[in-house]
């Protein structure tokens, strides 16, 4: 488990990458992060929803209400064009940052 400070700067990147392949609703996003990080990254939904709304306001993602047969209505989020661009850019920056960090602390060849 990581402290909140470490996660703070990367929430947006995390959420965007969860939506990279398909549209998902809030519960799925939270679960998927947990699943992909083998339970090491957990988000309290209290943090997730404000982030989703903020990203929607910025035009990175868009929420659409979908009602599937036999299920209740859910809001599915998908990436917009801007969102895709931001995702690419943030992923690049993250790669650079982590490799720089790794090099700096002597893990690059480990």
């Amino acid at each position: 488990m990581f402290g909140p400070e470490l996660k703070k700067g990367s929430v947006e990147l995390l959420v965007l990458s969860m939506l990279k392949d398909e549209a998902r609703h809030g519960y799925q996003i939270g679960k998927l992060i947990e699943l992909r990080s083998s339970g090491r990254l957990q988000f309290n939904p209290a943090t997730l929803y404000p982030v989703l709304y903020r990203m929607e306001d910025r035009g990175w993602i868009e929420g659409i209400w979908v009602e599937k047969p036999g299920e209740r209505r859910r809001c599915f989020y998908h990436l917009t064009r801007d969102g895709k661009r931001v995702l690419t850019e943030q992923t690049e920056r993250w790669k650079e940052f982590s490799s720089a960090m790794n090099e700096a602390i002597g893990l690059s060849h480990a």
Binding site: P45, A46, T47, P50, V51, Y53, D57
Partner: peptide, 19 residues
């Protein structure tokens, strides 16, 4: 218990103000 209600209220109010 899954929700931290105070954080949620703060976060939502903040994002609404921005909105």
């Amino acid at each position: 218990d899954r929700f931290d209600w105070t954080t949620l209220a703060d976060g939502l109010n903040h994002s609404e103000r921005r909105r």
